[in-house]
Simulated scan of single mutants.
Amino acid sequence: MDKEILTMEEAAELFGVSVKTFIKLLKEEKVPARKIGREWRFSRKALIDWLSSGDSQSYSLSEVDAKDFFDEVAPKWEELSRSYYGESIKNKLIEMNIFNKDMIVMDLGCGDGYIARGISKLVKKVIAVDISGEMLKELRKKAEKSGITNVETLQTQAEDVPVEDSSVDAVCANMFLHHMEDPEVQIREMYRIVKPGGIAVVSDYVEHSDRELKEKMHDVWMGFNKNEMKKWFMAAGFKGIKTQMVQDARNIGIFIMIANK
């Protein structure tokens, strides 16, 4: 490789690691890089110099900032989220009849369990994953109050979930991908986690221009182009992709995308 300016994938190749491992490195170390728009770029020389210098111990604050934000808003998250999309997404998922009693479902970026608690009666078990311990605490409290016993919580980074490959029947990501620096990495992780024949279910905003929403909800992306999202899923290996729409309280479109492995 003789290019001087590298993409994320090329930088990972230079280091001889997967993109997922390289992103984890970016979060845990001080790696020389610049973000141009929504894309990261790296200097080949700077990366080699950094690697040879042995500099470490610094930690990217982006994940810490997100965790702190969600820890802080956890007690009022239900009220906050209701003011945006209410029960519309959960009701639509139930209406679509895509879950059954034999399923183990993973809910990525579960928050206080909006989806996990909502579908718990329809499935065998829900594994609720979130980076925020306070959010998971709220989930457990609300589940206990409602008599829900089949929701298991897991505090971890959602782009590197410590579970076996092909370990769940369905994986859900509700209003979650717009918080991720690189949604394509998360989609590939979803493909790894779900069993062959299983499904991935993603609900998120279509592209919008509401900057107040972005700032208030600690978003990275201001929604997504549905066609671009579909391409990301296809690139990860998913097929049979279908999309339905709902609206939030301010008439911003929300897509629900279902993809088969």
Rank of each mutant, 00 (worst) to 15 (best):
M1V: 14
D2M: 13
I5F: 07
I5K: 09
L6H: 01
T7P: 04
E9W: 07
A12E: 09
F22T: 07
I23S: 14
K27N: 15
V31P: 01
A33F: 10
R34Q: 14
I36Y: 11
G37T: 08
R41E: 10
F42V: 01
K45H: 07
L47G: 02
L47Q: 00
D49R: 08
D49L: 07
W50I: 04
L51I: 06
L51S: 08
S52Q: 14
S52L: 15
S53Y: 05
S53M: 05
D55M: 12
D55S: 13
S56G: 11
S56L: 14
L61S: 13
D65W: 12
F69D: 05
F70L: 04
A74R: 03
E79H: 03
E79D: 11
E79Q: 05
L80T: 05
R82Y: 12
S83Q: 03
Y84R: 13
Y85C: 03
I89H: 01
K90S: 14
N91A: 14
I94S: 13
E95T: 08
N97T: 04
N97C: 04
F99W: 02
D102A: 09
M103H: 06
M106S: 02
D107W: 02
D107F: 01
D107C: 04
D107A: 03
G111Y: 03
Y114K: 11
Y114I: 11
Y114P: 04
K124L: 06
K125W: 03
I127N: 01
I127R: 02
A128R: 05
M135T: 06
E138I: 10
R140H: 07
A143M: 03
K145H: 12
S146C: 10
G147A: 06
I148G: 05
I148C: 04
I148K: 04
V151W: 02
T153N: 05
Q155L: 04
Q157R: 13
E159F: 13
V163F: 08
S167M: 08
D169W: 01
V171N: 01
V171Y: 00
C172N: 05
A173D: 03
M175A: 13
L177V: 15
H178R: 11
D182N: 15
P183E: 10
V185F: 10
M190Q: 01
I193F: 00
K195V: 06
P196S: 02
A200Y: 00
V201R: 00
V202P: 00
V202D: 02
D204W: 05
D204L: 05
Y205P: 04
E207R: 14
H208G: 04
E212F: 13
E215T: 15
D219A: 15
V220K: 11
W221Y: 13
M222I: 09
F224K: 05
N225D: 15
K230F: 08
K230H: 10
K231D: 14
W232G: 08
F233K: 00
M234K: 15
M234F: 11
A235R: 11
G237R: 00
F238K: 01
Q244E: 15
M245F: 11
V246I: 12
R250G: 09
I252T: 11
G253D: 15
I254K: 02
I254V: 09
F255I: 10
I256A: 02
M257P: 06
I258R: 07
I258Y: 07
A259V: 03
